[in-house]
Design a protein around this nucleic acid. Sequence first.
DNA 1: CACGAGACCTGTTCGC
DNA 2: TGCGAACAGGTCTCGT
Length: 278
Amino acid sequence: MPELPEIETIVAALRRGSEEVPSLIDLNIVGTQLLWERSLKTPTPAEFQRRIIGQTIRDIHRRGKYLLFYLSLDTLLIHLGMSGDLLMEPDSTSLAVHHRLILNLQNGWRLAFNDTRKFGRVWLTTEPKTVLSHLGPEPLEVSFTSQDLYQRLQTRHRKLKPLLLDQSFLAGLGNIYTDEALHMAHLHPLTTSNTLTLSQAECLWQSIRGVLQEGIRRNGASIDWVYKGGEYQHYFRVYGRTGQPCSECGSLIQRIVVGQRGTHYCPVCQPPPVDSME
DNA sequence: CACGAGACCTGTTCGC
DNA sequence: TGCGAACAGGTCTCGT
């Protein structure tokens, strides 16, 4: 489910807390329950329990679509996969069906990793770099420039849609924000990466950052039963809008499958590349 | 290196 | 109404 803006929103909420929910920062972990073993990549369940109990949550960060919890000694990494979410709830709450991992905290609250489809994963390690080493640049970092993007596009010969979804190319985009960024940049998802001009790459760079920033500003996107609180779904340009008019030109949004992912685009604003004979 | 198919999972919606 | 197919925010692995 969640892409960069949703993860960023979750991290901010866990860090800040709210009127109703305490912040996670500086809370001690006093117990765990692993309800679906395969959610835990490393270490073993016994080792996980032994090591994490007694550690304090010092800070929370994001890298790509990963959440990083900096504990007293280790780093806890969580990837939410397709349907994962993190919830703060009182210990007295009954366990929801799709809870996969619980961290009980010192103050009578718990952090619950809920994940219907079981694609999410958790790591506890002293070396988070080993888990994150495959990730490409952070699209919102100041160090990531349009020149960088242009050069990275030039060194590959791939279609834009699957390339932007490749986390080693750029970290954080998923199916929604990729379609949105390509529409904003007026680029067809099947365009070959190394055919972009410098100005097209600059436009794509702006668009990627633009949709991610707007996603964050709207607290992410909420669709169906997964993830709540976001508003960005009301502002989609193309995602999930098959057959509806393009906000820019009125043409009907099309859906095709690219790399086994549903892909939404405007046939007029995003003309097919010449090299993509149908 | 690039690409497609299949796995891993559960739940909802679509189409006949 | 019922039932199987298609589809869903992700990523990994294998074969070509």
